[in-house]
C-alpha cells in the first residue's frame, strides 16, 4: 500500500474540517461526511492492519494492536492539547463557548486515552508478560487519565457556569503543565526503556497503514468533539440567562427624593 493514499485521506479529513470551520453553512452536513470517512477509514484500516501489514519479525502478530493503540493515544493527546489551548484562551476572553470546547475536548481525550491505555495493557501482556509495566509512557498515560477524570469531576461539582468555567480553565492549565513533568519524572524514576519508534526505522507499509488509521481516527475525533461541543453549547444556553432576556434599553432612571 503506497504511503500517499494515507496522506490523501489525512489531507481530506483536515480539508473538510477546514471547510467546516470556515463556511458555517456547511456545518449541517460536513460532519456527516467526516463521520462516514472516519468509520470507513477505521473499518478498512483494521483490515489493512490485520491482513495486509507484514508480521513483525520479533513480535509476530501481536504488534498489530499498535495500529489501533498508537493513533488512539495520539488523538487523546491532540484533544487534550486543544483543551489546554481553550483553557488558556478562556482566561483571556471570558467566552463560555471556549469553555464548552474545553469540556468537549477533555471528554473526547479521556475517551480515546482510556481506550489507548487499555489497548496498551493488552499489548503488554504478551510482550512483557504482564498487563501492566511501570513504563513511563504507560504510567504517564494512566495518571493523565486520573488527572482529567478529576478535571471532569470538578465540572460536575460546581453549579455556577461562570465560576465552573474559570476554575476548570485553571485546573486544565495546571494539569496540562504537569504532564511533561510527570513524563520526565517517571523516566528518571525508571531510567530504562525502549525508545520511541519513529518513521525512520519503520517499514513503509506499516507506516502508511498507521497513517491511514490515524487519519480515520482524526475524522472521528473531530466528529466526536464537534458533537460534544454542540451539546455543551446547548447545555450552557439552558443554564445561562441569555442577553435577549434583558430589556432592550435601560431608558430613564426612575429616582425619587427620599
Amino acid at each position: 500500500m503506497p504511503t500517499w493514499t494515507s496522506y490523501v485521506l489525512l489531507l481530506a479529513v483536515l480539508g473538510l474540517f477546514g471547510v467546516h470551520l470556515a463556511v458555517p453553512a456547511t456545518r449541517a452536513w460536513v460532519w456527516k461526511v467526516l463521520a462516514v470517512l472516519g468509520v470507513g477509514g477505521v473499518v478498512s484500516g483494521s483490515y489493512l492492519a490485520l491482513a495486509v501489514a507484514p508480521a513483525d519479525h520479533e513480535m509476530g502478530d501481536v504488534y498489530r494492536i499498535m495500529f489501533a493503540h498508537v493513533p488512539e493515544v495520539w488523538m487523546a493527546l491532540l484533544a487534550l492539547c486543544v483543551n489546554f489551548g481553550a483553557s488558556v484562551a478562556f482566561l483571556f476572553r471570558k467566552d463560555l463557548s471556549l469553555d464548552a470546547l474545553s469540556e468537549a475536548c477533555a471528554e473526547v481525550g479521556l475517551f480515546f486515552g482510556t481506550i489507548g491505555v487499555l489497548l496498551g495493557a493488552i499489548w503488554g501482556r504478551p510482550t512483557w508478560g504482564v498487563w501492566w509495566d511501570w513504563d513511563p509512557r504507560l504510567t504517564t498515560a494512566a495518571i493523565m487519565l486520573v488527572v482529567y477524570s478529576g478535571y471532569l469531576a470538578l465540572r460536575k461539582f460546581v453549579d455556577d457556569p461562570e465560576k465552573r468555567a474559570t476554575w476548570s480553565a485553571v485546573v486544565g492549565i495546571i494539569a496540562a503543565s504537569d504532564l511533561p513533568i510527570l513524563w520526565f519524572s517517571v523516566r528518571w524514576w525508571r531510567s530504562l526503556h525502549q525508545r520511541q519508534s519513529g518513521a525512520g526505522k519503520m517499514d513503509p507499509t506499516i507506516w502508511s497503514i498507521l497513517m491511514w488509521n490515524t487519519a480515520a481516527l482524526m475524522a472521528l475525533t473531530i466528529v466526536f468533539a464537534y458533537q460534544r461541543y454542540r451539546i455543551a453549547q446547548a447545555t450552557r444556553a439552558r443554564e445561562v440567562a441569555l442577553p435577549s432576556a434583558l430589556p432592550p434599553d435601560s431608558g430613564d432612571v426612575p429616582s425619587e427624593a427620599a
Binding site: D160, V240, A241, A245, P247
Partner: peptide, 18 residues
C-alpha cells in the same frame, strides 16, 4: 452604565444605569 449581572439562569441586574 448599563450594568448587568448574571448568576446562572438569572439576571440579577438587568441593564441598570444610575
Amino acid at each position: 452604565r448599563d450594568v448587568s449581572k448574571r448568576y446562572g439562569p438569572r439576571w440579577a441586574l438587568a441593564r441598570l444605569s444610575y
